[in-house]
């Protein structure tokens, strides 16, 4: 469980700040944080992991104030996938990279167990283990970064624009894997993401931010249907939601091309009956 209690943060110079933000995330949730550039999304997720400390209020993970322990100690519980995988990858092969992450936080389990875990993860992600990370594509490097974080089996996964710069396949690979972690292992996921179609497809709850404030908090679909809110937060809702909002009656529940097409069909049949 993650709990933010009236959290504020201001950078010493400029930069987006966070202003009196409170919310609570239960175990196993999949939450997206939405907003325009500079709304305070990244600052918020950095506050959650304690990479920066709130200037007011407090952040609790499983009931403990994050200031009482260090970020590196928290790494066993909280995994953080950054936008740029190159800042994380520091070893010459994928195997070493994953092993390094394991040794750092699960060193007490003994070399044997960690090696076994490493091979398991390699197999799961379809890596041979001998690949050189820097000769892989950006999307593949992001998968290496994700693999080495998931290897540790964190309870909470924080993602800061994990799919930026990736093509469609790479994006699906990453997001599908994250969804599996969320559904099968009940890993709590908090994600900052600019691609609203991805948010609609994967996240269940959305927090909307603007100018450092939390504007709204609710189920993804309800949030996207609130046109006034979208306008205020400078967000463009996913296409099918915008479309069904425009179409109105008969399309209230349609949020995918399939369901919109079904609604069209239903209305046509209904129309035929009237005629």
């Amino acid at each position: 469980m993650i709990n933010l209690d009236h959290v504020s943060f201001a950078y010493p110079e400029q930069g987006p700040s966070v202003n009196d933000v409170s919310f609570r995330v239960e175990d196993g949730e999949f939450v997206a944080i939405l907003g325009a550039n500079g709304a305070g999304k990244t600052t918020t997720v950095r506050l959650i992991d304690g990479l920066i400390r709130p200037t007011a209020g407090k952040v609790e993970i499983n009931g403990t104030d994050t200031v009482t322990s260090s970020v590196s100690e928290r790494a066993r519980k909280v995994g953080f996938l950054f936008q740029n995988p190159d800042r994380q990858i520091c070893k010459n092969t994928v195997r070493e990279e994953i092993l390094f992450g394991l040794q750092t936080v699960r060193g007490d389990e003994g070399e044997e167990a960690l090696r076994a875990r490493c091979e398991e993860v390699l197999k799961d992600f379809g890596f041979s283990g001998d690949e050189e990370p820097f000769s892989l594509s950006r999307g593949q490097r992001q998968r290496v970064a994700l693999a080495s974080i998931l290897a540790v089996e964190p309870e909470i996964l924080i993602l800061d624009e994990p799919t930026t710069g990736l093509d469609y396949f790479e994006c699906c690979h990453i997001m599908d894997r994250i969804r599996r972690m969320n559904e099968e292992n009940r890993v709590t996921v908090i994600m900052v993401c600019h691609d609203m179609e991805v948010v609609l497809d994967y996240a269940k709850r959305a927090l909307v931010m603007a100018g450092g404030h939390l504007l709204a908090d609710g189920p993804v679909k309800e949030i996207f249907r609130d046109a006034a809110l979208m306008e205020k937060a400078s967000i463009l809702a996913p296409q099918m939601i915008s479309l069904s909002t425009r179409l109105g009656e008969g399309f209230e529940d349609a949020d995918s091309p399939e369901s919109v097409a079904d609604a069209v069909l239903a209305l046509r049949k209904g129309g035929a009956r009237h005629a």
């Binding site: 990479l51 995994g79 800042r87 994380q88 992450g101 750092t104 936080v105």
Partner: peptide, 9 residues
Amino acid sequence: EAQTARGVA
């Protein structure tokens, strides 16, 4: 920052 987040102290 990225290394701290993954447990390097």
